[in-house]
Nucleic acid binder design. Structure first.
Lengths: 214, 214
DNA sequence: CACTCCAGTTACCGCAAGTAACAGCTTAGT
DNA sequence: ACTAAGCTGTTACTTGCGGTAACTGGAGTG
């Protein structure tokens, strides 16, 4: 009997939730993850308890915020990963998609991966790591699935694929993080260098004069 | 004239500082990184302001704490990296050293890399990421130096070495983190899988039935 | 004895997370 | 039309932590 009513309410609540998330997004991207609940509420034009009614606690809000962004990123990565092309091309395209994403919106990236870095010194910050770690884990698992599904690795392939999935994601993440901070080269060069690494150039390279190399 | 006196005082202060760090270590390893300054002071048998006199603020304390552990780890890694052996053996030995370290003291590892994960839900936590990121950066830079120094990479070798340094460290870190959480295989297997990845097995493997692989 | 350091303490401030209790508006039921 | 829910929203509070100011007691020095 009250289904339509409840649906209306739910719709309204969902809209409100989205508005709140957008406001939170603005504040967090401006003030860094140290943004207070008060500030976020003010930006949204309301007060704290409403935020708590919608998201439970600060962790809930940040989780919802993180989910918005990570879902978008994962979608883009899946597309690059599923494109019809040679393996090397795909690897490069996936790397490039990730790097392009973090390059395009470094604020979002820093929010997701590097918690309190925009705040005042002494800012206690808030552990966003709890929400970024799952992102990397999900990326690792998804990549593992793709590898296991498409690459012939012989016996023990599933375990090997998972190790590689997480390892490659970690490589991409760390290199991207460093690159974003120092910008020592173009994106294309970085992509190429990483792909070369995955393609065994480290093993193939010769030693430098004297003694065995790394 | 007061050099000896100042030396005495300094020695005493240093000893005290070490005692405080050890107490802090105990508390942090027991209560997680959410440990309060009060708790740490209590464990050390003194009160807050003394901690602040020695370390400035909580960040200073945590930085000092992190430095203790990371210096030890970097020392061990350098040893593995500089050992006289074939390249593959060295890579495996370095990976194994890192993994053995995080396996032996997961509490320390979690403190360094995964801030608030041992605290109560709702614990605001404290951003230790500020101290763990530099660790990974340092590891990346040192590895880059070793690579650039010993491997012949042709033109652009310096940049390539840096990319690889950070990338490899990230791979090791992410894979180790995942492995430590799920323990899906033995340490030796993990080392072997990662080394295989670096040795280009991904590029060498054939496609699975139908379509180009990842 | 007076003077100065210095470790240490208590008692406080400011601020942010989270909550309780209250106020108004819309809607439904009779 | 009147009341009873059930929203959304508010103010005002509690709790707990980081950080600091100001005081206290003892050890060495002229």
């Amino acid at each position: 009997m009250d289904t339509t009513q409840r649906t209306d309410q739910q719709k309204s609540a969902d809209r409100r939730r989205r508005e709140l998330l957008e406001a939170a997004d603005r504040v967090v991207l401006r003030d860094g993850p140290g943004a207070s609940m008060n500030a976020i509420a003010a930006e949204a034009g309301i007060t704290k308890p409403i935020l708590y009614r919608h998201f439970g606690d600060k962790g809930g809000l940040y989780a919802a915020l993180a989910k918005r962004h990570t879902d978008a990123l994962l979608e883009a990565l899946r597309a690059a990963l599923d494109a019809p092309a040679e393996r090397r091309e795909r690897v490069e395209s996936t790397l490039d998609t990730y790097l392009a994403a973090i390059e395009a919106r470094p604020q979002v990236y820093r929010f997701l991966m590097h918690p309190a870095e925009g705040g005042q010194p002494g800012d206690p910050g808030f552990d966003i790591g709890k929400y970024s770690a799952p992102v990397l884990r999900r990326m690792g698992e998804e990549l593992a699935e793709v590898i296991e599904e498409r690459v012939d690795l012989g016996p023990g392939s599933q375990q090997l694929a998972r190790v590689w999935g997480h390892g490659i994601v970690g490589m991409m993440h760390a290199a991207g993080d460093w690159w974003l901070g120092e910008r020592p080269c173009s994106r294309a060069e970085l992509v190429r260098s990483l792909a070369d690494l995955l393609w065994g150039r480290l093993a193939a390279a010769g030693d430098r004069l004297g003694g065995p190399g790394f």
